[in-house]
């Protein structure tokens, strides 16, 4: 049993990387638009299927398709955002509540769309990188690192660094941070709230879709996968503290560890129960996330 421990830790670390990217996009959208997007898992699913079909059609490696998937879904998100904005700024009813209901309906629609168009079967996206793996050995312990998972981690790190640069060094990032602090004041300083929110939502949808392609290379994709990834995204964001970006990697890696430990040591069917149990305990003990810095 102990022999597999390093493998479990490494696997968790490698899987966690992808959750970081999803959760950062999600936190970004939450920070700017104050929207909890229940359709996040469905964006991942749709992105994964776009990657799958593009891969069949062009025969390119999925890693080369990532920018294309990003652009397609960023445009979709950009075009879509005004509808969500309209719901959130509605005068009737409780806008936040309505926003939640709206994205829930959206997610339902996408899932139905996915099941109609893509069917019920599971697929996986073949990549040239899937074939190889690094093998490390030291005494009794050994670790296998599939190249594809390592590439996923590299992808996650580069996206995170790019986003960090975008947020902290560019004018656009300044506008985004201003918006998430105080919407009205940012508007007075000349930030175009609507346009910036649309960009942010586009980036978030694009990143989610791109991560979907990677998930398709590493695990498998099916039209029903969305719900689980919605739960995972929430788990990471809630654990990190809603809107607290620096906590995201820790929560994401914790999720990766939980997943790989349950896969190796217990029954993977209990993963979601463990996820709920951790969520439950964290909310009970420290409602603002593990670092008590959320909102």
């Amino acid at each position: 049993m102990l022999l597999l421990l390093p493998q479990a830790i490494v696997d968790g670390f490698l899987i966690g990387g992808i959750y970081v990217t999803i959760a950062i996009g999600f936190s970004l959208a939450y920070g700017v638009m104050h929207i909890i997007d229940f359709a996040v898992g469905e964006w991942i699913m749709l992105g994964a299927f776009l990657g799958f079909y593009l891969n069949i059609w062009t025969q390119w490696d999925p890693f080369f398709l990532l920018p294309f998937v990003f652009i397609v879904f960023a445009v979709i998100g950009f075009v879509f955002q005004p509808v969500i904005h309209r719901v959130l700024s509605g005068k009737k009813g409780n806008p936040l509540l309505m926003g939640l209901v709206f994205t829930f309906g959206l997610g339902l629609m996408f899932r139905g769309l996915g099941l109609t168009v893509f069917g019920f079967y599971s697929h996986s996206i073949p990549s040239a990188l899937s074939a190889n793996s690094f093998f490390l050995e030291s005494g009794n312990f050994f670790v296998t690192i599939p190249v594809i998972r390592f590439a996923g981690l590299v992808y996650a790190l580069s996206i995170t660094i790019m986003l960090h640069y975008l947020l902290k060094k560019s004018d656009f990032g300044l506008a985004v941070r201003a918006l998430s602090q105080n919407r009205d004041a940012a508007g007075l300083m000349g930030v175009n709230a609507k346009r910036t929110s649309s960009y942010v939502y586009g980036i978030y949808v694009g990143i989610s879709a791109m991560s979907g392609v990677l998930i398709g290379c590493i695990f498998s994709i099916s039209a029903q996968m969305g719900g689980d990834y919605t739960v995972f995204s929430f788990f990471v964001v809630v654990l990190a503290g809603m809107g607290y970006l620096s906590g995201v990697p820790w929560a994401a890696f914790l999720l990766g560890f939980v997943q790989s430990f349950f896969l190796i040591y217990f029954n993977p069917s209990y993963t979601l129960l463990a996820v709920f149990a951790i969520l439950y305990v964290v909310l009970l003990v420290s409602p603002k996330g593990m670092f008590a810095k959320g909102v």
Binding site: V238, V275, F276, L283
Partner: peptide
């Protein structure tokens, strides 16, 4: 008990996670 002390979004998420967990179990 823990989720209803917080804002609505946490509750929506927690109930959603609970339902998926119970489904799997």
């Amino acid at each position: 008990l823990p989720t209803l002390r917080l804002k609505g979004a946490y509750f929506a998420i927690a109930t959603w996670a609970l339902s998926r967990a119970v489904q799997q179990v």
